[in-house]
Amino acid sequence: MNTSILKQGPYLIAILQAGQSDSDLLQLQETLLEQVGRFRSRGVILDVTLLDVMDSFATRTLRGIAQAVSLRGAETVIVGIRPEIAFAMVQLGLDTRLSGVLTALDLEEALAILNRRCREGMCRD
């Protein structure tokens, strides 16, 4: 299963699918990093609305993406962590592992955050 990646101006938006396997996620990481370089993107939005679970592995991978993306000069925002998933993540102890990553309720909000940070010069120009 291939994750769809949309290009929206200077940003990339990846919509993760339900029933996404571990290898799909690792594949996504590669593709995203490659595209960030190719399009000189300033931000990456990871939309996780459709995921049924955010376990240790998924969290670690998303955090890895965010860290790698930031090394390439772009910001990452995770969007769409649903209430019950957020609660489960906290119970697992995953919340502190994502403390360096930006989160937003929806795409609109995520775009607003990225725009603001770019205006404030926090991402590459």
């Binding site: 049924d52 679970v53 376990d55 240790s56 019950e84 609660f87 489960a88 993540m89 119970q91 697992l92």
Partner: peptide
């Protein structure tokens, strides 16, 4: 409840992994 379903699925995901 749906939130419990998620808790169970998450625990299971860890054990299976």
């Amino acid at each position: 409840s749906s939130s419990d379903l998620t808790l169970i699925a998450t625990a299971l995901s860890e054990l299976a992994r």
